[in-house]
């Protein structure tokens, strides 16, 4: 019952925040050019989704993000498995990886533009390449941190290298991989939006920056709300993936 009360309270608090937003904007305390009323924002959002091209723009942003993410995850896991399973590869490559790690993924955009120009494929490639790091490093860790006792179990059962990678390495790395894929998806969303802003390719990123440049603040807010929804959907998706793929970590007596 206390639980229920708290939940109701948390909904109430959100409503109060929305109400405050409505109050300060409707009374003209904040100029509508900086902050439209929530009502106007949601009406604009609804109209944009049903009649305008907001839905199509969201789809194109999400498509880029998801494609980039899948490429990054695939590449990161394969490469990470190879490096993680071989202590020699780990030894020789770790300083190089350590040097590249601190570079923000968005810095790849200028490099990509300078190298390849403004192609749509270039943007996708940069999203994938920039988002590979958050998957690669945890995957390496996951494949290299197999319990030594389990290595011995594998040896006494004479399990071959491929079966070892699949039956021991992959499940051992899976929690790390999922955590990495979560960060990677966030990185993908960020690089996608920034990439769209810079290259003016169709999507929510270019839409909101155009809206800001032409002072269409309701469109801007609608775009931000949509990006928030995409972010929340990402979190939910990864949560499901985690429960579905690593049942042994969530199952407890």
């Amino acid at each position: 019952m206390n639980n229920w009360l708290l939940r109701a309270g948390s909904i109430l608090l959100t409503s109060v925040v929305l109400l405050l937003w409505q109050l300060v904007t409707a009374t003209g305390l904040v100029r509508p050019i900086f902050m439209p009323t929530p009502a106007a924002t949601f009406v604009d959002l609804w109209r944009g989704l049903t009649q305008g091209d907001l839905l199509a723009l969201t789809m194109s942003t999400m498509q880029r993000m998801i494609f980039g993410w899948l490429l990054a995850s695939l590449g990161g896991v394969l490469l990470g498995a190879l490096i993680g399973l071989s202590s020699r590869a780990r030894y020789w490559l770790s300083p190089t990886l350590e040097l590249l790690r601190p570079l923000p993924a968005s810095t790849l955009l200028p490099v990509g533009i300078a190298l390849f120009g403004l192609h749509p494929q270039m943007l996708l490639g940069i999203i994938a390449f920039g988002a590979i790091w958050p998957v690669l490093l945890p995957t390496i860790h996951g494949f290299s941190s197999i319990e030594p006792r389990l290595r011995e179990v594998a040896k006494t059962l004479r399990i071959g290298p491929l079966a070892f990678a699949l039956k021991f390495g992959l499940p051992n790395a899976l929690p790390d991989i999922i955590a990495g894929m979560r960060l990677s998806l966030t990185a993908c969303l960020i690089i996608t939006v920034v990439g769209e802003m810079i290259t003016a390719q169709q999507g929510l990123g270019s839409t909101i920056i155009m809206a800001a440049r032409s002072f269409r603040s309701t469109d801007l807010y609608a775009g931000i709300v949509l990006l928030g929804v995409v972010g929340a959907a990402n979190n939910a998706l990864l949560g499901l993936l985690e429960i579905g793929l690593t049942p042994w970590r969530t199952a407890r007596t």
Binding site: M197, G205, I208, I224, V230
Partner: peptide, 20 residues
């Protein structure tokens, strides 16, 4: 609830707003 609603907004989405 408020935190869960606002937190997923990617910071880069705020760039145009702050520009404005």
């Amino acid at each position: 609830l408020t935190v869960e609603l606002v937190r997923p907004i990617p910071p880069v989405a705020i760039i145009p707003l702050m520009m404005l």
